[in-house]
Structures are given as C-alpha cells and as structure tokens.
Design a protein around this nucleic acid. Structure first.
Length: 303
DNA sequence: AGCCAGGCAAGTG
DNA sequence: CACTTGCATGGC
C-alpha cells in the first residue's frame, strides 16, 4: 500500500496536534520518529502522527497528520481520508465560537485560562468500539500506560497493513479480539481490567449487548453501563469521545479536584452528580470545557 | 515504602 | 440506597 492521497485544511486557530492526541482523549495514534508523552522533546519540528483503522467496507487504512500554523496536512492510503480527518477533529464545528461561548458561561475565569493555555486543543471523536475498550482500560491508570495497553492489543490481535516495508496495526475488531484469552490480556499489562475487556467483548460478539447505543444521551449512558467495566465515568468518556455527545462531562480525579477548587457549588457527593451539575453550567459543549480543564489541571501539576 | 493513576464490581449494612 | 474493599501495575 502507498499513501497516495493527501491534502490540507486551513484553520482559523492553529491546531495543536501534540496536545490533542497526547492529552488522553484518544489512545489510537502514534508519533513517527519519537516517543510520545515525553515533555522534554528536543526536536523543534512538528511531529507527524499516524493511526490505522477499518473503514465501513472493512478496508484497513492508514491516516497521517501533521500541523503547521494554520494548516493541517494529511496523507492516507484511502481516498476518503479527508472526511476521516474532518470527523476525527470535528473540523465542521466552529471551535472559536465554542470557546467564547464556554468562556462566557464560566463563573470564575478558569476556563478562559485553560483555553488560553491550549487554544489549539481540539476535542476529538473516535470510533466506538476502540474507544469503549480504551476507556475500560483507563481506570486507575496513567495516560501513557493506557496508550501502551492499546498498542499491545493492536499488535497482538489487530490487522496489519504494510507501507514502505513498515508494519502498521489497527485496533482489533470485536471478532478479532474474541480470540484473546483473559490470561493473554493480562500478559499485555491490562491487569484486573483483562476480565472486564474479555466479558465486554463476549457480550458484543454473542449479541447479549450489541454495539447499538440509543440516541438519547441518558438512555445511551444507561446502556453503556451494562458492559462490565463501564461505570459512570467510563460511560461518559465513551459518550463524549466515541459517540460525539458534546455536552457530557466525564468527572475523574482531576476534574473532581478542579470542582473542589473552582466550582464548589457544583461539587456533589458523588462524581456522577458533579458531572450533571457541570453539564448544566456549560450546556451543549460542556464536554469541551471539561477537556480544556482536564489538560490544564494535569499540566499545572507537572504531569 | 507508600501513594497515586481519566474507577469499577461485589459485598455489606 | 450509601458506603467499603479488593483489584494489577509501574513511576515517583
């Protein structure tokens, strides 16, 4: 295969690919020529990121991305790569408008500070199944190590495509993952999450809980929570990053900490209630506010 | 050494 | 319903 298709997007606000891809929204991309999650990056050059995925026609394709100021350059083995990128970064949305809306709705300026720190952070939208498994793996785990687990799963069970003698692995489909035993998953460093993944994959493959999620956000959340390993927080991440429910605010330790400091009125007894309360504050794009705040909190604490 | 990381399931009262 | 406990693993 070759990367025969390419093009570029122009954006009003330069896209910060590094922050967008390495801030824990997705674990499905890799950096070419370099390690990710490494703060002291010596190279000044903008990194190229790649991902591998299945199209609806079950074709294995590679997408590559690189940003330079107001331009975003893409390459792909797939002629419709442009739309894949557009969907991934939600380029059809007016991010500048969303940012000002969130700043206006905020009560104390911390969202403005977060957005000003990372104006090029985009909120992404990824395929459902890989996102579901990624966030099941995410519990009690640092972002970098979740990424390692997802890479391990892809290399062990995913389909491969070769470009210029280099092998690229897609995240496995439910049927590809069905052959993984729980012990094999533990060997890939999933820890106690191995049984969650194993049970969820079985429930999808034998149609006990098919991957057909309701359109209503509350119903969708309830539905996702039927999968083993999916509680309120993981469900919210899947809703936001895998299904495009932009209003959803996943509350983890970082966001709860932020709520204690900046939104005491919205801090409830449990994280689920805190989540719903923050959603009512920020509205349609509350999930975007969460993403900026999450990244701000993590970097403020030198992670 | 102990604490923590994008929490959850299962058990108890 | 609300609250507690065990769970894998690696980095600091």
């Amino acid at each position: 295969m070759t990367l025969e298709y390419n093009g570029k997007f122009k954006t009003d606000i330069p896209i910060d690919l590094e922050t967008t891809i390495e801030s824990g929204q997705t674990f499905l991309w890799n950096k070419e020529n370099g390690t990710m999650f490494n703060n002291n990056n010596i190279s000044n050059e903008n990194p190229t990121y790649y991902t591998v995925r299945h199209t609806k026609e079950d074709e294995i394709i590679v997408l590559k991305l690189k940003s330079n100021n107001n331009y975003l350059f893409w390459e792909s083995t797939y002629k419709n790569g442009r739309n894949q990128i557009k969907s991934f970064l939600q380029l059809d949305k007016n991010i500048g408008e969303i940012q000002s809306e969130l700043i206006n709705k905020d009560t104390n300026g911390i969202i403005e500070k977060s957005i000003n720190s990372f104006p090029g952070l985009r909120i992404i939208n990824e395929p459902l199944f890989p996102t579901l498994i990624s966030f099941i793996c995410s519990t009690q785990m640092r972002v970098e190590r979740i990424h390692n687990m997802i890479n391990n799963l892809s290399k062990s069970f995913g389909s491969c495509i070769t470009i210029d003698e280099k092998q690229y692995y897609a995240f496995p489909t439910p049927s590809e993952l069905s052959i993984a035993t729980e012990d094999e998953l533990r060997d890939l460093k999933l820890g106690y999450r191995a049984s969650y993944v194993s049970k969820t994959v079985n429930n999808i493959n034998n149609n006990t809980i098919p991957l057909q999620v309701p359109n209503d956000v509350t119903e969708a959340r309830k539905y996702l929570e039927k999968y083993t390993g999916v509680g309120p927080k993981v469900a919210d991440c899947v809703l936001l990053y895998g299904l495009g429910f932009t209003s959803v605010v996943p509350v983890d330790t970082w966001i709860e900490r932020a709520a204690e400091t900046y939104y005491p009125n919205h801090l409830k007894k449990n994280r689920d209630d805190t989540a719903r309360s923050l959603e009512s504050l920020f509205g349609t794009y509350a999930g975007f506010a969460q993403a900026y705040l999450f990244h701000y909190m993590r970097t403020e604490n030198q992670l």
